[in-house]
Design a protein around this nucleic acid. Structure first.
Length: 127
RNA sequence: UCAACGUGUUCUGUCGCUUCCGGUUGCAGAACCGGAAGAGGAAAGUCGGGGCAAUACAGGGCGCCAUACUUCCUAACGGGAAGGUUCCGCAGCCGGCGGAAACAGCAAGUGCCACAGAAAAUAACCGUCUUGUCGCGACUUGUCGCAACAGGAUAAGGGUGAAAAUGUGGGGUAAGAGCCCACGGCUCAGGUUGGUAACAACCUGCGCGGGUAAACCUUAUGGAUUGAAAGACCAAAUAUACCGGAAGGUUCUGCCGAAAGACAGAACAGGGAGCUGCCCGCUCCUUUCCGGGGGGUAGGUCGUUAGAACCUUAUGGCGACAUAAGGGAUAGAUAAAUGACAGGAGUCCCGCAUUAGCGGGAAACAGAACCCCGCUUACAACGUUGAACGG
């Protein structure tokens, strides 16, 4: 139910490059969300990648921690996307662009808002 | 306080991640269930060295780079062990202890040495001594003294400086000087003794040359380059060299042929692209379909986790370490797993009580990326050991 396995990760290099070059994005401090509609036949509704800038966090420990938080937030709230976009497919990137190490409790509501907005935007652009 | 070494919190619940094993369903791709394992002493910096891999490579010289007291250890190292020398510290000397060293050569050549100083390396500014000329003075009348100018000798004294030409004493001399002598210091050469050696002690002899090689350089030794994104293999889609099969407008020419026809070339038609808002026009290109197929992209598999490894004991060695015997072993990700939340336990700190206790807070440095051996740097708290001496 609340799984976040390998299938739901976005791993293909060309797809990632396409997402960051052509994808639409919106921002809610301190996380930026990129997205594009996908067109595969398989199971997951969304493939997700998380990213933290090396410029803001020099230590690998800090970057790993933030990525784990982002992944955890998505895992707990991905029902929003699965219910909102049944039958559709999309690829998503969550980029942390803040400069301080966040806490789980403050980060989770932001992710919820972002995912709700993603569902709305997808419906207005795709029809 | 400093230095060295060691340890580097832990348990339960809920949800979740990666790998492996087992089971169920399914033709299969997969899905689900259960179980096991899952970051460090530095995983870091990527600074040495090696394994491994690819490429290059007759042999030699020059060049370039690295290293630089000695012996030993090691697969190897710029690492380590033991020892030597010099310097520093323990208020002075000797011993002892501790620490530091880019510790081969400036006595092979070349260069450089700020400021100050006459001068920074073929030393003469002041001073000291002396010769000549001219002048002045003295008197015992051809000597002495003083001053100026010109020349010579001199490294004893002065001041400058980080550093000024071997130190002290004596002789010597016009004044001086290793010029000579005594006792020292240092360099080189030779020898004796001890030591594997660096070196130390002593003896003899030539000598006295300032510093600087993290200046060029000289000597000796070593050195191919790249780096797991190395490299090996499998390989969708799309385009396609090449091969096979089928179909392939009209006319003319050449060639083969009796003919049918095949091949080649040209023109026209057709198709496509460009110029343009459109037409005309001009330029360029020229079969189509099906099958095979090589290289090769996305992606995947291997490399890829048992290794010069670790632990214990014994033996050898001052020691680094070596040898032998025995023992325990599952991290393998790849836009990159090892987590989040909640609640305890232990440790430390603060406050209140100062006997149990209560409340609050803190837990560093830091995240495997082919694998090893080192070095360097970071580090809360706790534990162990050592440290400022003798005559």
């Amino acid at each position: 139910m609340h799984t976040f396995g390998k299938q739901e990760h976005l791993c293909s290099i060309p797809e990632i490059q396409k997402l960051f070059h052509e994808g639409k994005s919106f921002f809610r401090h301190p996380v930026k969300l990129y997205w594009l509609p996908g067109n595969w036949a398989g199971k997951p509704v969304a493939k997700v990648i998380v990213s933290v800038s090396k410029r803001n966090f020099k230590k690998a420990v800090d970057r790993n921690f933030i990525k784990r938080l982002l992944r955890e937030c998505y895992r707990r709230n991905k029902v929003i996307v699965e219910d909102g976009l049944t039958g559709k497919r999309c690829i998503v990137a969550l980029v942390y662009s803040g400069k301080e190490i966040p806490e789980f409790k403050s980060l989770e509501p932001i992710i919820i808002k972002l995912l709700e907005r993603l569902v709305k935007e997808y419906e207005t652009t795709a029809g």
